[in-house]
Amino acid sequence: MKNLFKLFSIIILIITSNSNSFAAEKVEYLKTDWSFKGLFGKFDRASLQRGYQVYTEVCASCHSMKYLSYRNLAEPGGPEFSEAQAKAIAASFEVTDGPNSDGEMFTRPGKLSDKFVMPYENVKAAQAANGGAYPPDMSVLVKARGGGVDYIYSLLQGYEEAPNNVSLDDGVYYNKYMYGNKIRMAAPLSDGLVEYGDGTNATVEQMSKDVTTFLMWSAEPHLESRHQMGFKAIVYLIILTVLVYFSMKRIWSRVESEV
């Protein structure tokens, strides 16, 4: 019994210390309170909606989000735009469809079922337009970076003058959170770059937080139901474990042995 507890605690200790040591190789990331962390973590709807605005007005000119559809914007657990709003958002994009009965491709306004429209036709076109660097698809970007949300949040605010001993090529920028400190993306955010509909002050910090929240959702669209189900599942398991424990004690009381 005691051994089992000891074992589990050791394992959890090893795992957490290990993951910490991976993050600790690099600089300390900026910290902020994420509403989606913790046992009951949920997304901040308003922040998700603002984050979508930052994504679509700023990031989307270079970064695709190919695994998302416009319908996702109205689904529970996400930004939860109304269906009408999501339809309007979709319709504001031109989508190439076809071929029609004449064998021609044609464009039409987007529908809820369409995937997010990509800024470039293909990877090569994206590279050609960005000095050879491919702006990564953002659908699962948060999960594809070691530091996760903290890394993205910090990176967006990590632009500064390069130290004297670092020389930068044309089109390369200095970012203290980037691996190797050199990044092909110019500082994407500046105070007041977008105008939030809800009157929130669009500071770089605020926009970074909102867009990172949005990216967390896009990478884990079922995070809220996962947390809810997880809590129920674990409470259920704990209750069952306690019941089984007492049954076991009762059954084993018939023999001369400890359990």
Partner: peptide, 18 residues
């Protein structure tokens, strides 16, 4: 007894999954 240990194990398992 195996069932009890399995449930303990499943709690750890569920923590990771969720």
């Amino acid at each position: 007894k195996d069932g009890f240990a399995l449930l303990m194990f499943m709690i750890v398992f569920a923590f990771f999954v969720f």
